[in-house]
Design a protein around this nucleic acid. Structure first.
Lengths: 356, 356
DNA sequence: CACCGACCTTGAACCGGTTCAAATTTTGCT
DNA sequence: AGCAAAATTTGAACCGGTTCAAGGTCGGTG
């Protein structure tokens, strides 16, 4: 009865010696038992059992294989973020599903501060990273580059071409949103956008849009406008208001929008969050949705189903993004891989044909 | 400008050669730069930069250090479970917090089927396991034992002494529950317990309790009774009904309890789940809670705050359990460690002084 | 000038496996 | 029995580092 001894576990070498075979043969017993003569195989297994050897230590295997069989999911947020944020949870569900199907493990990489993050990224035992890009994305990307492992950034609106990215097709999604409203008969629109440039808000021109450092916001505007133009709508008359996705900037954008002599009958909000703030403001002003004005969001967060009225929106297939990201790491070993995933229009109660 | 080349990253050996120093010195440059002469250090760093070496590969470090700096969190459920189950999420938040504070990584270990689980447990690159014991706990424990790594089981009511366990103090928590009711003035009680033995239900004797294979259920009864006896209550008159934590067995227990000529004024439910079923039955029978009868749950699940009436219960400090589990692995290297964590009484609307 | 200690550097051993060409043993056949 | 082919086994190299005893260099001291 071998006692468990954490101080010194037996190694393959010990087993080989005990069984009177070479290390190579012992290794084969565990990895390719079929090429070892039965008699020898049994002898080795018996020796292993008697000295308490439970099979090859993954640490050794990993070194020589050069593969860890795990991918790291990294973010700048503290680790707990993965389990708290609703978006993150759905995404992780997709990631774990793909990993499960592939027998790949998942390591969570993150840290409270920059320094630890650097260390964690550099010392994580993984074959690649999925970068959960929120704030601090550039830093995360730089660290991953340094580590010289394959990595894929999620839905990060960057112009950097030299890396793998899995994201939704913002142009196509925005197009769906605009088309939906145009098909309902709307002809007067306004856009509530996210930031084009860090921290800026207010009415934006197309020059500003084109100079955006956040390509997500830019692409959504482009998507809207392409679709609207297909309906013969002159988009140069469609006002674009940049917001910080907070109540204040959304409200002041709306104040300005509805101060116009011919206010829009439909609002294109670049995120559900913006749409919710807009809904609140409209209700406060006694403007009825969707009777007086229609509004469509973007993202398809769970709350969009339960708002008043329920929000028509463009749903991101979050879990699918996670799954694809895993495949991107696993299947496209290191080469840069860019993939756009289709979004889906979810029609709920916040859109309807215009009044007249 | 060294091109990133996934096929063949430079190794410490390459750096040493390029800098004209020994591998040992090169290693020191990265790990104990202070003991290397400045001139040499710079030469090595420069050589590293020029051939595109970004620092020691954790794979190598890990092998020789024998430590991975990560702990595995294992469960029998599919990986997605970690991100979906509310209890799991809170627990993980605690675990991640403790790991964060310690610079330790987290690997998620789990699998859809038995075979994969075995492989995953055997091949996970971790220094120890936290076992998330739900169904299939025995199997998980057996696998972890085989792996010969430290592990700690969470809140698993087993009698097995030869392993580390972090759990709540069921006796103390149950005591709190009973004391609360006794202090309100209650003197006639009934206990709705979880299983003592797999699959059994119905009225239970103290012999049955003492022979329980699930120590959680047993300890909670003991806790209740110890506290009640301190109030001079004769616990031999307190009926104990074993339930399967489902509606049916809880209902039939209640039928029997309230068929008594002098029914209890207070019910001690061993889980919130049981308490909810009891609440439903009592409402259906027109028995008012807490006017006619008080009821207290156990666990403090989120729903307990929003039930009708809100449930008085014993809250488990779930996140704290997670934190302690991490410490148990990290601080008590391999030795078996058993820890009980205090619970907390949460008084809500389901308890009140007895009518008379 | 010889010797000593402080400070660096070296080189080999080791961590625990995997892999593969070469050596050895079996097997199949005549 | 003799011999080639097939089946096994061996042993060394390798994966990418870390560690440490031993050796070397250099300045200071008696």
């Amino acid at each position: 009865m071998a006692k468990i001894d954490f101080a010194k576990a037996p190694t393959l070498h010990d087993v080989a010696k005990a069984a009177g075979v070479s290390k190579g043969t012992a290794s084969n017993v565990f990895n390719r038992p079929d090429i070892v003569r039965e008699e020898v195989r049994e002898r080795v297994l018996e020796a292993a059992k008697s000295i308490g050897y439970r099979g090859p230590d993954p640490k050794g295997r990993m070194l020589s294989a050069g593969k860890v069989n795990a991918i790291g999911v990294a973010t700048v947020e503290p680790l707990a973020y993965f389990f708290e944020d609703p978006y993150a949870r759905v995404l992780m569900a997709g990631i774990t599903e793909a990993c499960d199907a592939n027998g790949t493990g998942i390591s969570l990489v993150s840290a409270a501060n920059e320094e630890e993050l650097a260390w964690n990224v550099h010392s994580a035992l993984v074959d690649g990273f999925i970068l959960f890009c929120l704030k601090g994305a550039e830093r995360l990307i730089a660290l991953s580059r340094e580590r010289q492992l394959p990595f894929v950034a999620l839905d990060f609106g960057t112009k950097d071409d030299a890396m793998s990215v899995v994201s939704i097709d913002n142009i196509e999604g925005a197009g769906r949103a605009a088309r939906h409203l145009a098909e309902l008969g709307h002809r007067r629109f306004a856009v509530l956008s996210m930031e084009f440039i860090e921290g800026s808000s207010g009415r934006a021109t197309m020059e500003r849009v084109n100079a955006a450092s956040y390509s997500t916001s830019r692409d959504r505007v482009r998507g809207y406008f392409e679709a609207l133009e297909a309906f013969g709508i002159d988009t140069s008359n469609v006002p674009i208001f940049e917001t910080l996705c907070d109540r204040e900037t959304v409200q002041s954008a709306l104040e300005e929008i509805f101060a116009s002599p011919s206010p829009p009958t439909a609002i294109l909000a670049q995120s559900d969050r913006i749409a919710f703030f807009a809904l609140d403001w409209l209700k406060a002003k006694g403007i009825s949705v969707p009777a007086d004005v229609s509004i469509i969001g973007f993202d398809g967060v769970p709350e969009s189903a339960t708002s008043t009225p329920p929000l028509t929106t463009i749903r991101q297939p979050i879990a699918e993004i996670g799954r694809r990201a895993v495949r991107a790491i696993l299947d496209h070993h290191g080469e840069t891989w860019r993939e756009k995933i289709d979004t889906e229009l979810v029609v709920r109660g916040s859109t309807a044909p215009p009044r007249d």
